[in-house]
Computed example of a mutant assay.
Amino acid sequence: MSAPAETDSARRARRRGAARLAAVQALYQMDMTGRGASGVIAEFHEARFDQEGDDTALTDVDTDFFDGLVSGVVKNQRDIDGFAAKSLAKNWKLDRIDATLRAILRAANYELLNRADIPARVIIDEYVAVAAAFFDGPEPKFVNAALDGAARRARQGELAGK
């Protein structure tokens, strides 16, 4: 018996999930190397997306979503960092946390602030899953708590009563 065909909505969600994972990797790379967004985006398109025979390649990525996410985070990074820092414990700064977590929070907060077309719960769930792909410890719970607080500030009323 064959598996049921994937719906367009499920395919779009899966492709966006892959784009989010790739965007976090790109943002991390930019943070660690100091390279600019355009060079890193081009590298992902040329060397990381859909490379046949490469077990580490990211396949079936929504590249437009990836491009918009990475470039949007870079363009709005000062505002995003200030907003994301409000979700951290008192006296903690965004630059004090793990670079991967910082990339996750930047991407997620960009979406919360700039992608009203995507429900806050979807954004939170997606980035908790990204955190779980990188960490086995308490980090996914940290991401969940930080993004829940950020979503309540960014999307007043959307998460009310939940």
Rank of each mutant, 00 (worst) to 15 (best):
V130C: 09
R121Y: 09
E139I: 06
N91D: 15
S87H: 05
H45F: 02
A131R: 02
Q29S: 08
L94V: 11
E158Q: 11
D60G: 07
R121A: 12
L58V: 03
R155Y: 02
R115Q: 08
R48S: 06
I80K: 01
E158H: 03
R16I: 08
K141C: 06
W92D: 15
R121P: 00
E43W: 07
D64S: 13
S71I: 00
Q51N: 10
A108V: 03
S71Q: 10
L159V: 10
F66E: 04
R20S: 07
A129V: 10
L69Y: 03
A19H: 01
E46H: 13
G82S: 10
A120P: 10
S38E: 05
D60S: 11
Q25G: 04
R15G: 04
Q25V: 10
F66A: 05
E126G: 10
V70M: 00
L159N: 05
V143E: 03
R20A: 06
A133E: 11
A13R: 13
T100N: 11
N114Y: 12
A22R: 00
R78V: 13
R78I: 11
V70W: 00
Y127V: 08
V61K: 00
N144Y: 10
D125H: 12
S87A: 15
V122W: 06
A160P: 03
F65D: 10
D125V: 12
S2Q: 09
A13C: 01
Y127E: 06
G149W: 02
A23K: 00
E46V: 08
Y127Q: 10
I97M: 15
D50H: 02
A42F: 01
L94F: 09
Q77P: 02
A133W: 06
R11L: 15
F142Q: 13
F66P: 02
F134K: 13
F134G: 07
I104K: 06
V73G: 00
K93H: 11
K141A: 15
N144V: 00
T100S: 09
R15E: 15
L27M: 05
T63D: 07
